[in-house]
Write a protein that binds this DNA or RNA. Structure first.
Length: 431
DNA sequence: TGTCCACAGGAAATACGGGGGT
DNA sequence: ACCCCCGTATTTCCTGTGGACA
C-alpha cells in the first residue's frame, strides 16, 4: 500500500510536469548541447537581426582583399567573455569559406582554441595536432621540432591560410616565443599566405609583449563591446522561439532578462543561462515564466556563483570564510573584527589539521574575501581601543550555511589524504 | 594636547613548487 | 636524475594611523 501510494505520487508528479511542459527543446537553452548545424542556424538568425553587424562589416572589409588575390594583414579582436568574438569569427569564416569555394580560391581555415592557460610548448603542440602534424606530447619533443612539424604540414599549401588563435592571452611562459614563431617565422617558411586572427579577453594583452613582435604584427584591431539590451533581446527571442512552447514567456520577461543582463555584464551566454534557469523554475512550478520567476532565477544563479567560487577558492580563503562564519555564530552578530576572526581561524585550523598562516597573510585573505564580495569590510577606528577591519557578512542564511558546508566538505576530503608518507599500495595502481 | 590601542598594510626576505634545460 | 630559474605564497619586520580617553 505504501509503495503504490508513492508510485502514484511520482507518477502524478511526472504527468503533471509533462502536461505543463513549457520547454519544448531544452537543447536550445544550452549551446554545448547543440550540434554544429543547429548552432549555425541560431547564429544566422542572430546575425540576420543585425546583431554584431558592424563587426561583421569590419571583418568583410578586412578580408575582402582575398577575393582580389591580395594579402590582408593580421587582425586582433578584443572584448570581454560572452561578447561573441568566437562565434562572430566562426560564422564569418563559414561564409568566407563558401565564397572562396565558389570563386575557386584556395583557402584553409583553422581554429586554435587556447581555452585554458598553458605554456608555449602545449600551445605549439595543440597547433601541430590541429594540423595533423603531431600527436599530443607531454614532453620529449623540443620546441624546434614542433615548429618544424607545423611548417612541414603546411609546406604544400599555397593558398590563404587563416589561423584563428582564440584566447591568445592564455599562453603563459614564453608567450614571446609562441608569438614570434607565428608572426615572424611561420609566414617566411611556408608558401601559403598566412593571416592570423587573434582574439583576447584582456585589453592589455599586447602590453606585455615583446615590442619587436608588436611592430611585426601591424595588427588591425576590432573591439567587441558588451551586448546592449536590444541585442540581447534579439538573441533571447530566438532562443525562446526555438526552445520554449508558444506563450511560455509572459510579456516583459525577455525585456527584463535583457535589461538585467546588459546592466550586469552584457554577456550573451549568461543571459541565455538566466532564461534557461527561469524556464526550469516555471516548468517545475507548472506555470509560465513570470517576471517574478526571473528574479528568483537570478537569485539562484547568484547563489550558485558564490557556492562555485568558494568551492574553487584557495584553502586559505575558505578557512578565512569559515572563521568569519564561526565568529558570527559565536557572537550572534553580523559584524566582527580581525582579531576575533583570527582566533576562530586558528581553532578551525586545528580541527582541520592544517597549519595556520601568520596574521599578516590572514589579513590578505580577508581582503580577498571582500574583493570577491563574500563580505563587506571597512577600516574602523575605535580610538583608544585601536583600529581594526570590521567585517560584515551580509549573505542570506541559507547561502551562508551552504557555503559553510562546502568548506567543511573540502576540508574533510583534504584530511583523508594521509600525512606526508609515501603512498602505500592500498589503492589500485594508476599506471 | 598628547598618548596609546590594535590593528593596517608596505617592503624585503624567505619558502615552495613546478617546469625547463642538460 | 639533477639543478636552476622563476613566479607565487608566506613570513618577518616595519612604520603609520583615527580618535577615545586621560
Amino acid at each position: 500500500m505504501e509503495t503504490s501510494h508513492i508510485k502514484k505520487k511520482v507518477f502524478d508528479e511526472m504527468e503533471n510536469v509533462a502536461s505543463h511542459d513549457i520547454i519544448a527543446n531544452a537543447r536550445y537553452l544550452n549551446d554545448e548541447q547543440l550540434i554544429h548545424s543547429e548552432q549555425l542556424q541560431v547564429l544566422e538568425e542572430i546575425f540576420n537581426a543585425n546583431v554584431r553587424s558592424e563587426e561583421m562589416t569590419h571583418l568583410s572589409r578586412h578580408f575582402a582583399p582575398i577575393l582580389k588575390g591580395n594579402h590582408p594583414t593580421h587582425l586582433a579582436l578584443w572584448g570581454k567573455t560572452g561578447t561573441g568574438k568566437t562565434l562572430t569569427v566562426r560564422f564569418f569564416m563559414g561564409i568566407l569559406a563558401e565564397m572562396c569555394k565558389k570563386k575557386k580560391i584556395p583557402l584553409r581555415l583553422e581554429h586554435l582554441n587556447l581555452a585554458t592557460s598553458r605554456p608555449c610548448f602545449r600551445a605549439l603542440n595543440d597547433l601541430a595536432c590541429l594540423l595533423n602534424a603531431s600527436r599530443r606530447y607531454k614532453k620529449g619533443v623540443s620546441l624546434v621540432e614542433l615548429m618544424y612539424r607545423i611548417e612541414s604540414a603546411l609546406a604544400d599549401f599555397e593558398g590563404y591560410f587563416v589561423l584563428f588563435v582564440d584566447e591568445v592571452d592564455n599562453v603563459r611562459t614564453d608567450q614571446d616565443t609562441f608569438m614570434s614563431f607565428l608572426v615572424r617565422r611561420l609566414p617566411q617558411s611556408i608558401p601559403g599566405k598566412l593571416i592570423l586572427v587573434f582574439a583576447s579577453n584582456k585589453l592589455n594583452w599586447r602590453d606585455n609583449l615583446d615590442p619587436r613582435i608588436v611592430s611585426f604584427l601591424k595588427i588591425r584591431e576590432l573591439l567587441f563591446n558588451p551586448y546592449n539590451a536590444i541585442d540581447l533581446q534579439h538573441i533571447l527571442k530566438i532562443r525562446v522561439k526555438k526552445a520554449l512552447t508558444p506563450d511560455a514567456a509572459e510579456s516583459g520577461v525577455i525585456e527584463k532578462i535583457a535589461a538585467m543582463s546588459s546592466r550586469d555584464h552584457g554577456d550573451a551566454r549568461q543571459a541565455v543561462d538566466l532564461l534557461a534557469r527561469s524556464a526550469e523554475l516555471a516548468q517545475a512550478a507548472g506555470s509560465t515564466i513570470s517576471i517574478d520567476l526571473v528574479d528568483r532565477a537570478a537569485e539562484e544563479i547568484e547563489r550558485d556563483k558564490y557556492a562555485d567560487m568558494i568551492r574553487t577558492a584557495p584553502a586559505q580563503m575558505q578557512a578565512a570564510m569559515a572563521a568569519i562564519i564561526l565568529t558570527n555564530q559565536k557572537t550572534q552578530k553580523s559584524k566582527s573584527e580581525t582579531g576575533e576572526i583570527y582566533e576562530h581561524y586558528r581553532i578551525f585550523c586545528q580541527q582541520a589539521q592544517m597549519r595556520p598562516v601568520a596574521i599578516r597573510a590572514f589579513r590578505d585573505s580577508l581582503n580577498e574575501l571582500d574583493l570577491y564580495g563574500f563580505v563587506r569590510s571597512r577600516i574602523l577606528s575605535k580610538g583608544r581601543h585601536g583600529r581594526t577591519r570590521e567585517v560584515i557578512l551580509e549573505l542570506d542564511e541559507q547561502l551562508v550555511s551552504k557555503i559553510y558546508s562546502i568548506i567543511l566538505l573540502n576540508f574533510q576530503l583534504r584530511q583523508k589524504r594521509p600525512p606526508k608518507t609515501k603512498p602505500v599500495n592500498s589503492s589500485p595502481s594508476v599506471n
